Amino acid sequence: MTSQSQGIQQLLQAEKRAKDKLEEAKKRKGKRLKQAKEEATAEIDHYRLQREKDFRHKQSNIMGSQGNLTSKIDEETIAKIRDLTSNYHKNTERVIGQLLDEVYGIDPELHVNYAYTI
């Protein structure tokens, strides 16, 4: 009987060692998963920061060029307004003179369809 109880004891100890090894393996697996998750999160953060930096750089290039276009358009508009104003002041008297000539320069004449009867 002692050999049976010794056999049972050995089986129980072997079962306990197997259970301990299994728990240890689960803990190692959990640690590896946690470490992999942390590494992935760090890599994702690094990638996100890099992409945001690239985006800001491109955005500043585009917005900077739009700002230059806006200032160029404003300068051209001011130049056109200045030209129109100077042309207005140059031609005002000439146009008014032409209008007055048309209004006051009336040559009375008979209409073509007027039947002259004597």
Rank of each mutant, 00 (worst) to 15 (best):
R94A: 15
L11M: 08
T2P: 03
Q9E: 07
D54H: 06
S5R: 08
A14I: 03
T70P: 02
Q9V: 06
D101L: 05
E52T: 02
A40C: 04
D101W: 01
T117A: 12
I62L: 12
N87M: 02
K80C: 09
K31E: 15
T85D: 13
Q10G: 09
I96Y: 01
S60F: 07
D54R: 02
E38L: 02
A79G: 11
D107S: 12
T70S: 13
T2N: 14
A115P: 00
Q6V: 05
D54E: 14
V112Y: 10
I78A: 14
L99G: 08
A79D: 12
E93A: 15
S60K: 09
L100H: 02
E43S: 15
L110G: 05
L22Y: 04
Q6A: 11
G67I: 07
T41P: 00
E24C: 08
K90Q: 11
R56Q: 14
I78C: 05
E39I: 01
R94N: 10
D101F: 03
T77H: 13
K29A: 15
T77S: 15
G64E: 06
A36Q: 04
Q35F: 05
N113V: 02
M63F: 08
L11G: 11
E76D: 15
V103F: 06
D54N: 07
Y104A: 10
R17C: 06
E24I: 09
K21G: 08
I62W: 09
R82E: 15
Q35C: 04
E43D: 14
Q10Y: 00
K29C: 13
H89W: 14
L84H: 11
G7V: 11
T2H: 13
T117L: 07
L84D: 14
K26G: 09
E39L: 01
G64K: 01
G64R: 00
S86W: 08
R51E: 08
K72W: 02
A42E: 04
T70K: 06
L49R: 05
N91I: 04
K34W: 09
S86E: 15
D45C: 04
R28N: 15
L100Y: 03
Q98A: 14
I81Y: 01
A42S: 09
G30S: 10
L11A: 12
S65N: 15
L12I: 06
Q98M: 06
K72M: 09
A115E: 06
G105D: 00
K29F: 13
E75S: 15
L84G: 13
Y104E: 06
Q59S: 05
A14D: 12
L12M: 05
A18E: 09
G64I: 03
V112G: 07
